[in-house]
Simulated scan of single mutants.
Amino acid sequence: MDFLQLTGKNILVVGVANRKSVAWHTAKLLLEAGANVIFSVRSEERATTVRKLAPESRVFVCDVEHQDQIDRLKTDVTGCVDVLHGMVHSVAFADYSAGWLPFHETPRDAFLQAVNISCYSLVALSNAFKESLDPEHGSVVTISISTTRMAAENYGYMAPVKAALDSSICFLAKSFSKFSKVRFNAVCPGLLKTSASAGIPGYVDSYLFAEKATLRKKAVQTDEVASAVAFMLSPRSSAINSQGIVLDAGMGTNYFDDELTHDSSE
């Protein structure tokens, strides 16, 4: 039974870095569901990796920092499919090369680059493909974080950038509603084990704490995120629009867990 109704659907997945990434887990699940997955990656090196992972799929290179490359991606994708039924935006970047800094010392260039790559790229890609997305059942899903209100010092300026991404979802959904029924949503997981997260200062300590804070005492898994993304792309989620779907295994309701409070008092 094709419950998700994704068989034969054309889905653009933007942002696969390697086999550990949310984008790849999502793409793998979509391929298993019978979807036609088209990939957009940042570099030729990543394209080589993805072609090995998905040899039957088309893979294009697009650095979303550059509008001309986004325009070229549109031409490449529309040259091989007539319609896009969905798009996955799994793109984020922050330059932590300066080391950990208090938020008020965030370098301007680093902040603006993070906004451009991690947030504005969704707006630019959506605009580029506005005439290609299925106007009746199209779905765009981005990857955010479980909360942008928890001021984690080591995550730094990326939380405000993700907050901008969350807000952009609402504005894109409203803007597209003027001429289509394309839906825009975010899947917002708790801390994950990915290659990208490894570059965040002190991430392992935060990850281990977050795992203890979940109700099940087990961190959110990347394949769980992929399942949520697939559902949000599916017509089965047709009534969900302009939302952030939180996947935190109950962490947001468990800050005062006995185990955590006893640990902190010792």
Score class of each variant (00 low, 15 high):
L133S: 04
S242H: 05
S144C: 04
F209K: 11
K20W: 04
Y96Q: 12
D109Q: 05
A35P: 08
V182H: 02
S227N: 05
E136D: 14
T148V: 14
V22D: 09
H89T: 06
A124Y: 07
L73D: 12
V13S: 09
T253A: 14
L101C: 04
K218S: 13
V64R: 02
A152L: 14
S146E: 10
K217H: 12
K217R: 14
A186R: 00
H66N: 13
L122E: 09
I245T: 10
S97A: 04
A94S: 09
G199E: 15
P107Q: 01
Y207I: 07
S167E: 15
D2A: 13
A27F: 15
C62S: 06
L84N: 02
P201I: 00
T253P: 09
V16W: 05
R42A: 07
I38V: 08
L125P: 07
M158W: 09
P102V: 03
T222C: 14
P235A: 04
L30A: 09
F3G: 10
F111A: 13
L192F: 04
F39W: 03
T7A: 15
R108N: 12
C188I: 03
A47H: 00
K74R: 04
A239D: 13
T222V: 15
G15Y: 02
S177C: 13
F209P: 09
P189A: 09
V88G: 01
A249Q: 09
S265Y: 02
N10M: 04
Y255Q: 14
E136M: 08
T142E: 15
K218F: 07
F39K: 06
V115K: 04
D223H: 12
K174L: 07
G34A: 05
R108L: 10
D257N: 04
K217F: 11
I143R: 08
Y207R: 06
T222Y: 11
A54C: 09
D223E: 14
A35V: 00
R72T: 02
V187W: 06
L6P: 02
L125R: 01
A159G: 08
A151W: 12
S132Y: 00
A92Y: 03
D82M: 09
A47K: 12
A186Y: 06
E44D: 15
S118N: 10
F93S: 11
N154M: 14
E105N: 10
L133T: 01
D263M: 15
S197L: 10
S197E: 13
K52Q: 12
I70K: 01
T253I: 12
S265T: 01
V91C: 07
K218D: 10
G8S: 06
R19T: 10
G138A: 02
D82R: 08
A186K: 00
V16H: 03
I117V: 14
E136I: 08
T261S: 13
E32V: 05
V187Q: 07
K217P: 03
L30W: 06
E65A: 15
A228K: 04
M232D: 06
R149D: 15
S265I: 02
A219W: 00
K218Q: 11
S132E: 11
Y155P: 07
E44C: 11
D2M: 11
F256A: 10
H66P: 13
M87E: 02
A164P: 07
D205H: 06
Q5S: 10
A219Q: 05
